[in-house]
């Protein structure tokens, strides 16, 4: 595991993340926005790799890039009657921009006043084996609860989206 986070890969992935995020919001075509969202997910997975969170990067690619973007694309295509319906107006509102900017300024102030107590270098980050060992020992209860959450979401999604008896 690397002990430092290099600058150049961070800059590349940061530009990919932010550019993709802006393109998600600024795309006129909903399908294009979904593909830009996929690009943002992949870039964030790269950032997880950079932060030596290899397992989370894998989960990010599998869950977000694999499942969520396909789900979004399916929904987009099921709710369009014509091909032209994918093109929309940009829907940009000044009040939303103001709220987002206010949140950004508040977060920037919080970050500026953040003085981390960094541990003395060199830092050796634990790998996937330590992650799994801790997940099934000290984090076992949240793990079980999250499986129940997924089951409830699964049943609820089938119930809502199916609804065959009507």
């Amino acid at each position: 595991m690397p002990e430092q986070v290099a600058l150049v890969p961070f800059l590349i992935l940061a530009i990919a993340t932010l550019g993709g995020g802006v393109m998600v919001v600024l795309s006129r075509n909903v399908v294009h926005a979904a593909f830009w969202l996929l690009e943002v997910m992949m870039a964030v997975a790269g950032l997880f790799m950079l932060l030596s969170a290899g397992f989370l990067a894998l989960v990010q690619v599998m869950v977000y890039a694999g499942a969520v973007s396909v789900l979004v694309l399916f929904t987009v295509m099921l709710t369009l009657r014509r091909r032209e319906d994918a093109i929309r107006s940009l829907d940009l509102s000044w009040s939303a921009a103001g709220i987002a900017l206010a949140v950004l300024v508040a977060a920037a102030a919080a970050i500026a006043s953040f003085t981390p107590t960094l541990p003395a270098a060199p830092v050796v980050t634990p790998g996937v084996e330590a992650f799994g060992r801790a997940l099934f020992t000290s984090w076992a209860l949240p793990f079980e609860i999250s499986s129940v959450i997924l089951l409830v979401a699964l049943v609820g999604a089938v119930w809502w989206a199916g609804g065959g008896e009507k």
Binding site: V5, A6, L18, V40, L47, I99, L104, I111, F114
Partner: peptide
């Protein structure tokens, strides 16, 4: 190398874009 602050700034900007 980079520390935690650039990552936090990146996350804040991405959060603001999503909120918008």
């Amino acid at each position: 190398t980079v520390g935690p602050v650039p990552f936090m700034a990146l996350a804040a900007i991405l959060f603001a874009i999503g909120l918008f």
